[in-house]
Simulated assay, not measured.
Amino acid sequence: MNGRIIRGRAYVLGDHIDTDQIISAEHLKLDPSSPDGYAGLGRLAMCGLPDGFPPFVDPASGTSPYAIIVAGDNFGCGSSREHAVIALGAAGVRAVVARSYARIFLRNCVSTGELLPVGCAARLNEAVRTGDEIAVWVDERRVGTPDGRVDAPIEPVGELAGIVEAGGLFAYARAAGRMPARAG
Rank of each mutant, 00 (worst) to 15 (best):
C77D: 08
A98W: 01
G162E: 15
M179Y: 03
I154P: 02
L116I: 07
C109E: 12
N125E: 13
E82D: 14
G92W: 04
G168F: 00
G131M: 09
A90L: 12
T130S: 12
S64M: 03
D151I: 10
Y101L: 02
A135C: 11
L160C: 13
G92T: 10
V138K: 05
V118G: 02
G167D: 14
G92H: 07
V150T: 06
F170N: 11
F105S: 13
L115F: 10
I68L: 06
D147T: 05
G168T: 05
S111Q: 14
V164E: 04
G168I: 05
S111W: 05
R123L: 00
A71N: 02
R129W: 00
A121G: 03
C120K: 07
A121V: 06
L106Q: 14
G131T: 08
N125F: 13
I68S: 00
Y172W: 15
A127R: 15
S100E: 04
L106P: 00
P156K: 10
G76Q: 11
G144E: 07
A122K: 08
S100K: 06
C77S: 14
V138G: 00
A87V: 12
G89N: 01
L116P: 05
I163H: 11
F105E: 05
L106M: 13
N74Q: 08
I69K: 03
V157N: 11
L169W: 13
N74H: 11
C109N: 07
E159N: 04
L160R: 10
I86V: 15
W137G: 11
G78V: 10
S79D: 01
D132R: 09
A166E: 05
G113L: 03
W137S: 14
E165R: 13
S61W: 02
A84D: 09
A87K: 10
A173W: 03
C109A: 14
V93I: 10
C77W: 03
V85Q: 13
F105P: 01
V93Q: 05
A161E: 14
G162P: 02
E126V: 01
V136H: 04
E126M: 11
W137P: 03
G168H: 09
I86T: 15
A135R: 12
R103E: 14
S80E: 12
A173G: 12
I134E: 02
A91L: 00
R174T: 09
P156V: 01
R94E: 10
Y172K: 11
V138M: 01
C120N: 01
R149M: 09
R149N: 13
I104L: 13
A152V: 02
A173Y: 13
I86N: 12
C77E: 04
N125D: 15
A135M: 05
F170H: 01
V157Y: 00
R141M: 15
L88Q: 07
Y66M: 09
W137N: 15
Y101G: 00
A175E: 14
A161F: 06
G113W: 04
E114I: 06
G177F: 05
G177A: 01
G162Y: 00
